Amino acid sequence: MEPYNLTGTLEFILLGLSEDPELQLILFALFLLIYLLTMLGNVLIILAISCDSHLHSPMYFFLYNLSLSDMGFSSTTIPKMLINLHAHKRSTTYAECLTQVSFFILFGCMDSFLLAVMAYDRWVAICHPLHYQVILNPCRCRYLVVMSFCISLIDSQVHCFMVSQLTFCTNIEIPHFFCDVPELVKLACSNTTINDIAMFLSSIIVGFLPASGIFYSYYKITSSIFRVPSLLGKYKAFSTCGSHLSVVCLFYGTGIGVYLSSTVSGSSRESMVASVMYTMVVPMMNPFIYSLRNRDIKKALWKIVCKIT
C-alpha cells in the first residue's frame, strides 16, 4: 500500500474490544455505568471541597484539581467509545484522533504530576508540620498546579505535532478502543525514530520523575513516622497518607500493567484490557477511595445530602 500523508480525509478504524453485537451491548451498559459513577463521584468531591470551608487547605485543593483531571481523563475516551458501541461504528476521523491523543496525554500527565504534588504535600504535613502553612501557602499551591498543567500541555502538544508529521497507509486499523500514540506510531509507514525517542523522553519526564518524587516523599515520611514513640501517633500519621497511597498504587500499578502487557506479551487484546483499568476504573475508584477513607470528606458530603433533602 502507498504511504498517505493524512490531511483530514482519511479515517482510522478502531477495532475496539469486541465485534460481537450482544457483547457490545453489555460493554455499552458497563462502560456507561462506569462513566456515570466517575462523573458523580468526582463532582461530589468537588462540591464537598467547594462548599465546606474546613476543606479549604492545600491537601484538598490538590484533590479538587485531581478530580477535575480525572473527569477530563475519562471524558477523553469513554464517550467516544460509547457512541461507537451504540451506533455500531468503528471509524474516527483524523482530526478526532489527534484531538483525543492531545487530551488523553494532557490529563494523563496531569494525574501523574498531581499525585507527585500530593505526595509532597503529605511529606511537608508530616515532616514539617510547624512550617506547613508557610511552605504550602495558597500562592505556591496554585503555582504547583499551574506548572503541572503547563508541562502536561507542552508534552501533549509535542506528541500531537509529531504524530501529525507521520505518514500512514490507507485503511488504517487501530487494535484499540481509542487513539493512542504507541499504536499510531506502530502503524506509521514513515520513519518513527524521532517519535520513539520522544516517547522514551516523555515516559521519563511524566512517569519516572513524578514516581521518583513520590517514592522519595514516602521514604522521608516513613522515616519520620518510625521516630514517633506512640503507636497511636504512628497510626494517625499513616492514616493521613492511606488514601493517597492507595490511589498512587492503583494509578501506577495499572499504568505499568499497560506497559508490560504491550511489551512482554505483545498481545493487543491484553493491552486493551489493561487500558480499561487504566483509563476507566482508576478515575472511577479515586473519589470513592478518598470519600470512604476520609472523615472530613464524608462529613462534607453528609452536609450536602442534608441540604438537598
Rank of each mutant, 00 (worst) to 15 (best):
M1F: 02
L6M: 14
L17S: 02
S18M: 03
L23N: 08
L32W: 05
L37C: 11
I45C: 06
S50R: 03
L55N: 01
S57C: 03
M59I: 01
Y60D: 08
F61N: 02
N65Q: 08
M71E: 07
T76S: 15
P79Y: 10
H88S: 13
T93P: 13
T99C: 12
F103K: 13
F103M: 15
M110D: 02
S112C: 06
F113M: 07
F113W: 07
Y120C: 14
A125E: 14
P129L: 09
H131Q: 12
Q133A: 05
V146F: 10
M147T: 13
F149A: 02
I154N: 06
S156D: 03
T167V: 09
T170F: 01
T170A: 09
F178Q: 09
L187R: 00
I194C: 05
I197H: 09
G207N: 05
F208E: 03
S212G: 11
G213S: 06
F215T: 12
Y218H: 14
R227S: 08
R227C: 05
V228M: 05
L231F: 05
L232H: 08
Y235A: 06
A237H: 06
L245Q: 09
L250M: 15
G257L: 14
V258I: 08
S265T: 14
E270P: 01
S271N: 14
S275D: 06
L292W: 00
L292T: 13
R293A: 14
R295C: 12
